[in-house]
Design a protein around this nucleic acid. Structure first.
Lengths: 150, 150
DNA sequence: TCCGATCAGTAGCAATTTGCAACCAATTCG
DNA sequence: CGAATTGGTTGCAAATTGCTACTGATCGGA
């Protein structure tokens, strides 16, 4: 039996990586759970408090994220309680969350409206992410295209 | 009356840009519609064919994306038919879609499994996007934090 | 000019998903 | 020991989604 990185499910568009990603985390809540996990949330209650998600839905999302390998459930170092921690795959969503955040900062707030910002260790704001080609030129939808699988 | 970049709706988490972005495009289909728009789709039928979305839902999503300023509906240059085109805000989702795509390429396919890839004008694959601090060091969830609005 | 095909949706209804509130067992705290 | 907290589950109502069929406008050819 072949090892797959994710349990089988019927993909919306099996060969498109964007669609596959959205099949895994493209619902109303999953990315917010990941966001909070990156921000230090570990426990069921903490996720519930931060997101405001309904408890039964949170149960379902945590289970799916664990099943899909984005979160792992393990015993907390101190004490006997279980906690949810990001896996490598989960942590690797960081660039995606940052770009979504940066888009929101640019387009989902009225000019001058306050919002939280992402800063590094020295409290310096994280610079805007811009896709670049191998030779260093800026890329956008017009200068790239999807190459179908051969 | 103040100009807002988006019509009023009750935000899941008003001060978090990630949450606001997801309130606008964080459903099952919107980002796939944007993806297809970036890939050249213009008409209702074309979006429907590419995504496989139900027609009434597509109607709803197109309307919302127009209402939120990600798509605009305008008369096609040739002929008399109307078409949907990306606005600047819509096109600006490019980095987010690329990072979601790259995550999918890394984690949503079995090793060796084929998938489409994104290439530039010279058919060179687009390099991986990595968040970097102002001083050039790599950033991740552990070396950044969200600074609440003051 | 008439005929069929295509486009851009709507309408009705069933199935699925979500949200709310209450409940419950096991820890943990004072 | 008793109360509060954690991490859920259950039942039900409301909202969202998907499927299929239908409509009216336009287009393209014979």
């Amino acid at each position: 039996m072949a090892r797959t990185p994710v349990p089988d499910l019927d993909w919306t568009d099996p060969e498109c990586p964007v669609a596959r990603t959205l099949d895994l985390v493209g619902d109303r809540w999953s990315l917010l759970v990941i966001r909070d996990a990156m921000d230090g949330a570990r426990s069921f209650t903490e996720f519930q408090r931060r997101t405001g998600i309904a408890r039964n839905i949170l149960t379902d999302r945590l289970r799916k994220l664990v099943a899909h390998g984005l979160l792992a459930q393990r015993t907390a170092p101190s004490g006997r309680r279980r906690e949810y921690v990001l896996t490598d795959a989960g942590r690797d969503l960081f660039p995606a969350i940052v770009t979504l955040r940066q888009w929101g900062e640019r387009h989902a707030f009225a000019p001058g409206e306050a919002h939280s910002i992402l800063v590094d260790q020295h409290d310096i704001p994280v610079p805007e992410i811009t896709p670049t080609s191998a030779d260093g030129s800026l890329l956008d939808a017009d200068t790239t295209r999807v190459q179908k699988i051969r």
